[in-house]
Design a binder for these strands. Structure first.
Lengths: 359, 359
DNA sequence: ATGAAAGCGCTAACAA
DNA sequence: TTGTTAGCGCTTTCAT
C-alpha cells in the first residue's frame, strides 16, 4: 500500500454543489436523481439544469454504501473456454445495461480460485448477485449462499438450490440425428464424448430417441464413446481417434455420424481427410455447439441460443435480487440446427445391395 | 426503483463489531487491515483473530469512498472480436489479482456506446483506471482524460497522449516471410488486407524488408491487397477472393504466400482446396495472429504474446495509478513464429526451368 | 414539497 | 501505540 495520490485538479461535483447552486437542500437533489415523486416540477427542472451544466454524475460507491446495494454483478467463468462465454456475456451485458448494472468479471484458471473469488466479492458485499458458469458450485458456498439467500444464477450447470439455465442437450441431439435421417441416411452412427458426463449422456439419449422414432435400428458398432477423462472426451483428439475406428469399418462405415461436439468433429474431419475420405460425399457429419470453428470448417451443427441465455440469466438474476425469496427455477433452452456443408444426402454408391444385418 | 429488500438475517460484521470484541478502537482495526506499522504485534494478532472468527471482510465500497479510490479498473473491449481479448484479459486478471483489484468489463457493440460507458464509469469515478482495446479513443474523451490525468492504457491501438502497447506487426511479417525464405522459397507472395489499415501497412513493410534483405525481388503480381472496407479486409472472404487471383496465375503461382491474418488464411485455404491444390505441397501459407482456428487448420502463423501483453497492461496501469504524472510510454511487443504444417520447403516440380522474369 | 440530520463502513488526521 | 473524530457522497427518515 503506497501513498494514494489524489486525482489532480478537477474534483467531480457532489450533491452539495448542485444543492447550493440550485438553492435547494441536498435531500431534494437526491430525490431528483432517484425519481422520487414528491419534487415539484419546477424544482426538478432547476436541479437537473444545474446538474447537467456541472456534468454531475452520482457517485456509485457512495450510493452503494447508503443503499446497501452495489448495482453490479459478478460473472464467474472458467477462463479456459472462450467463445461460448463471450457470446453469453454479450447477452448478459445487454440486459444489464437496461438495469443500470455493472459487470465484474472473474475468470477462473484453477478451481481453487473459485472459492477465494466468491468469498472476496460476495462476503464483502461488493456485488449484488452472481452468474456462475459451467462449473459445479463448490458445496461450501452452495450451502452458505442458499442460507444467506445470495442471488445466484447458474449457467450451463445445475444445482437444485439455485436458479439455473441449461440447454436441452437431448433435444439438440435429436435435431441433429433427425436432420441426418431426413437427408435419407440409414446407416447413422454417433461419435460421443465420455458418457460419464451429463451432456454426453443426454446427447446419446437424443440420438437414440430420433433413431427409435424413425424406426432405424441402432447398430452398437456405430455408437462409439470416448473413454478419455480429459475434458470428458470433448476434445479434438478424442474425435480423431474415434473416427479412425469408424474408418476402420471400411465399407461397413456409416454414411452419417452425429458427433457430440464441434471440437470432436474437427478431429473427426482430420481423420477423414487423412484417410482420403471426403465429407459430405463419403460421409456426413453433424456436430454440436456451433463454435466459431464450425462455421469455418463448414460443419453442420447444433447451436445454443447464447445471447438469449445471457439476457435471460441477467434478467432472472435481477428478479431474484428484487425478491430474495423466489423459489429456484430451472430453465431449459432449445438449441437449433445450423445446416452447413458437412451434411448431405447419402451418395448412392455402386448400388450393390442394401446393408443386411444391423443386428 | 423498487423497494430494496435487505439481505435477510445475516449482516456482515463491520470494524465496530471487531473493535468491540477485540477491545480496541475502530482506528486500530482499520490500521490492522491496512498494514499500518504502528500497531503492536499483540494487538494486531488479537484483532486478526477476532476478525477471522467473524469472517470479517472490509467493505470495498466504504473503503472506496473513504480512500477515494475504488480498486477496480474498467476494460473497454469491442465485443465482436473474441479470442484475442479473452487471452489478454487472462493476463490482465492475473496481474490484477496481485494488485487486489477488480475487473469491470464493458463490451462495446456499437462505437456510440463507448462514450456513454466511459462517461458513466469514469466521471462517476467508479473505476481507478481504464484499459482500452483496439479502438480509436474518441477525441472528446482523449482530451478530457489527458487533462484530468485519468489513468488509461491503450492496447492494440495508439494515441500519443496515453500509454499504449501494440505488437510489432512489421517484425512479425518479417519473421513470417523469413521463415518462407529459409525454407527455400523464392517465389513468395503476400496476400494482404486493406492497406489503408495500419496493421496491413506494417505487415507489408515487414514482408518487403525480409525480401529485400534476402535480395529476392518482389513481383508486384505477387502482392495482392484487399480493397474491402469490411473489417479492413481481415476477413475470410477477402482471403478467399485474393487467393483465387493467385490461383489464376496457374503455373506462375508463387510457391509460398504470407497472408496478413489467419482468418484470411482460412479463406485462402478454402480456395486452394476448391481448386484441387494442396497446402503445403503445392503452396506454403503463413498466417498472422495465431487465433484458435489456426491451430485446428494447422496454419503456420505469427503469434502475439497476449497473456504477457495483458499482464503488462495491467502493470502499467497500476504504475500510472500510483503516479499520475508519468509521461506516456509506448511499448512494442515482439511476436513469434509458430510453425505448423501449412509451410514446407518448395517441392521441386518437374524441374522445367528457373522462373525467368520477376520484373 | 422541502430542508435538516442521521447514518452506510471505512480511512486518516489529530490527540493523547 | 492507540482511541476519537471528522469526513467520503449519498439515501432516507423526520420534521416542517
Amino acid at each position: 500500500m503506497e501513498a494514494l495520490p489524489e486525482r489532480n485538479g478537477y474534483l467531480p461535483p457532489t450533491i452539495y454543489d448542485i444543492a447550493k447552486r440550485a438553492k435547494v437542500g441536498i435531500g431534494t437533489v437526491s430525490r431528483v436523481f432517484n425519481n422520487h415523486p414528491s419534487v415539484s416540477d419546477a424544482t426538478r427542472k432547476r436541479v437537473l439544469k444545474v446538474a447537467n451544466s456541472l456534468n454531475y454524475q452520482p457517485h456509485p460507491y457512495a450510493r452503494g454504501l447508503a443503499r446497501k446495494r452495489t448495482n453490479s454483478i459478478l460473472a464467474v467463468i472458467p477462463f479456459f473456454t472462450t467463445f461460448f462465454f463471450l457470446e453469453i456475456l454479450q447477452g448478459v451485458q445487454e440486459k444489464l445495461g437496461e438495469l443500470d448494472c455493472d459487470l465484474l468479471l472473474y475468470g477462473v484458471h484453477h478451481p481453487d480460485h473459485v472459492e477465494s473469488s466468491l468469498r472476496q466479492n460476495v462476503l464483502r458485499s461488493r456485488v449484488d448477485g452472481i452468474l456462475f458458469f459451467s462449473m459445479a458450485m463448490p458445496a461450501a458456498f452452495a450451502k452458505q449462499y442458499a442460507q444467506m439467500k445470495t442471488p445466484v444464477v447458474l449457467i450451463d450447470t445445475y444445482n437444485k438450490d439455485f436458479d439455473s439455465l441449461t440447454v436441452e442437450n437431448s433435444f439438440g441431439a435429436f435435431l441433429a440425428t433427425n436432420h441426418l435421417i431426413s437427408l435419407g441416411h440409414k446407416r447413422i452412427g454417433m461419435l460421443n464424448a465420455n458418457i460419464e458426463s451429463l451432456p454426453a449422456h443426454q446427447r446419446l439419449k437424443g440420438f437414440q430417441r430420433a433413431m427409435n422414432e424413425a424406426e432405424i435400428p441402432i447398430d452398437p458398432l456405430y455408437v462409439k464413446k470416448s473413454s478419455s477423462t480429459k475434458l470428458d472426451g470433448f476434445t479434438r483428439e478424442a474425435g480423431y481417434e474415434l473416427m479412425k475406428e469408424f474408418i476402420a469399418l471400411g465399407s461397413e462405415m456409416p454414411t452419417a455420424i452425429f458427433v457430440s461436439s464441434d471440437i470432436q468433429a474437427s478431429g473427426a474431419l482430420a481423420a477423414l481427410t487423412e484417410a482420403g475420405l471426403r465429407c459430405p460425399e463419403d460421409i456426413s457429419i453433424v456436430g454440436f455447439d456451433d463454435i466459431e470453428l464450425a462455421s469455418h470448417l463448414g460443419i453442420t451443427t447444433i447451436r445454443q441460443p447464447m445471447a438469449e441465455m445471457g439476457a435471460f440469466a441477467a434478467g432472472r438474476l435481477a428478479e431474484r435480487m428484487n425478491n430474495l425469496n423466489l423459489p429456484p427455477t430451472h430453465k431449459m433452452f432449445m438449441p437449433s440446427l445450423v445446416v452447413r456443408k458437412s451434411s448431405a444426402p447419402p451418395v448412392v454408391r455402386s448400388v450393390k445391395q442394401k446393408k443386411v444385418s444391423l443386428v
